[in-house]
Design a protein around this nucleic acid. Structure first.
Lengths: 338, 338
DNA sequence: AGAATTAGCGAAAACGTTTTAGGGGAGAAG
DNA sequence: CTTCTCCCCTAAAACGTTTTCGCTAATTCT
């Protein structure tokens, strides 16, 4: 690896001058700056990140907090889509990404310790247990943080627009003649709460009756529970004409259970999901769902974080909502009353 | 952050002594070593990785090469399962992981340059274009490398046992009475070639006729192509009684197309996938498939790599195959000839 | 012309570690 | 008593940057 010392020798200047030339300091003449930069490019010089980190505590490394207890985070298509976009955008801007964990050198440490240990320039919280004291610790650590789908105090947040998403879905369902909607929602969280509130509000606006026993809790991706609830719903005297699942995975599972039970989808009952994962659109009938724009979310998050790292003063902390699109497939049919 | 200097001051020894005590050098008396270690633990000392990297060029950081042109790598359940396991195992052993890319500081560099730039201790090639000169460059760079599902010269490799996997599937299919099997295989690669060879070999052993026009190429995860081929197959005079897809995604897609075409699965035709992704097992009828053990693969890969990093002499380079399990679901039925 | 300012550059310290070479002291051998 | 070993430890250099301070020479001002 070529170092500043070699460049300095070749250009007959001191190491200090090379450093300043490459870092755009003002006390270097344009001429020497040009010469030094040309030589540096020619030799393929890159600053040694270890040496730089030692002096400046900046590493061009951003941490990603990406944890879920089931260790299925990476296989969750929405989150991994976000991660992929964070990764791509960060790399384009010259940052590498590192996963934050609890261990280093065989010893347990907190997330915040890990982040300072590695001198991470900033952190994107993609998926985590937001109430975990350790996660809170990260937010309080002073390292710039951007979070996805959860608002923390005093840091920017990229939110999928769950309010609009749910409204769009309900409006679509309503426009297809449905008034008996069952809503299976995930466990309480920022996301679930927003969707739930939006569901109630939109139904109220559209004058859709919402019996309490049609609002059921079903953890995200819990196909067992979704199947069970689906069976229960279809055993009732007054069956729903449309079932809204917490996500596409449970929706696909529900769809297949309904067929198993000899119901025709969408003739007998309509099925709607949430997320817009690929497999849901890959076969017929395509799933009606709301596609969350994971790419935009991840990319906006990375850009926001890096702005904050590079211009801490002039970057305002804000909540940015990213909208999704309704994908209408044949699992949602027209309901003819009576 | 507490440094060696502070520990040295407290223990009334020199910084060099602290370093040697913590690194198990022999020229430190057991007594002083004990004292120093106790103090270090008490103060929560961790060596500064930047300073250490500057001197030793080792970072306790391993790189992951994880690229695919469609930027869907992270959303590929098998690969992301492997990645998750690599990440978990590496972290347990004190290593962080970093994605290797083409960019740093806005400039393009090769994978190998990136890896040396960041002083990565080793690299796991999880998913990449193995013929890419840049990837070859990584293997040749001298940095320890372990690859998944592709054998490179002079480096360890973790292979999913595609030969056994395919044999198990074909034997199962045969035992259910099928003799007209259509095999949709992926684009040529180490993996595809192994499966294809195993398919032919097993069919020969079981005396299953394999007409050439029943062996069709269908890129992995290409549901469009899978659907098209499925339609074509079912228009033939002599239809297959079982279709073997390149992966679960295309299998699920094919399954639904078949239903769309009013075929009953498995009564009219059986469907078999490969991979064992979660969604395939989450609804009825469950997909018959071969579950690849992504967790074991990733974890073995990480352990092998770290062994190689820490004991370069005594770690032998080898090809380790990891077997999978047949998952038999109701998409494979018994075929009654005639 | 002399004084004051400024532009351009370099010397050296510092970041926190590892490692080499060597030194002091105690005990053993002569 | 001197010399040789050996044990335990330290001083100092080195890794590759960044940054502070100061210096020289050139330019501007009085």
């Amino acid at each position: 690896m070529v170092s500043m010392k070699e460049i300095a020798a070749i250009c007959h200047v001191s190491v200090a001058t090379v450093s300043k030339a490459l870092n755009n300091h003002t006390d270097i003449s344009p001429e020497t700056r040009r010469i030094i930069r040309e030589k540096a490019d020619e030799l393929g010089y890159f600053p040694n990140p270890a040496a730089r980190a030692l002096k400046t505590h900046s590493t061009y490394n951003i941490g990603v907090l990406f944890y879920d207890e089931a260790h299925s985070g990476l296989t969750h298509e929405y989150f991994s889509g976000v991660l992929e976009a964070v990764k791509g955008t960060a790399q384009m801007r010259g940052y590498d990404i590192t996963f934050i964990s609890h261990f280093v050198g065989g010893k347990r440490m907190t997330y915040a310790q890990h982040a300072t240990y590695r001198n991470l320039d900033g952190i994107v919280i993609v998926c985590a247990i937001f109430e975990d004291p350790e996660v809170i610790g990260v937010v309080r650590s002073g390292i710039p943080v951007v979070s996805i789908d959860h608002t923390f105090n005093n840091c920017s947040c990229i939110m999928s627009d769950n309010v609009k998403g749910m409204r769009d879905l309900v409006e679509l369902i309503h426009s297809r003649g449905h008034s008996q909607i069952a809503f299976l929602h995930g466990l309480p969280s920022t996301v679930t709460d927003a969707r739930l509130a939006s569901f109630y509000k939109t139904c109220a606006e559209l004058k859709i009756q919402v019996p309490e026993d049609c609002i059921l809790e079903c953890p995200y991706h819990d196909t067992e529970r979704a199947n069970q609830l689906t069976r229960e719903l279809m055993l009732r005297r007054s069956k729903p004409t449309c079932i809204l699942y917490p996500d596409d995975i449970t929706a696909i599972s529900g769809l297949n259970i309904l067929r198993e039970l000899q119901y025709s989808v969408p003739r007998d009952v309509s099925v709607v999901g949430y997320d817009g994962i690929a497999i849901g659109q890959a076969f017929e009938p395509r799933l009606t769902t709301l596609r969350q724009d994971a790419e935009t979310m991840g990319s906006v998050a990375a850009n926001k974080l890096i702005d904050q790292i590079e211009h801490p003063k002039s970057t305002i902390k804000e909540i940015i909502t990213v909208g999704g699109n309704v994908l209408e497939g044949a699992t949602l049919g027209v309901h003819v009353p009576g």
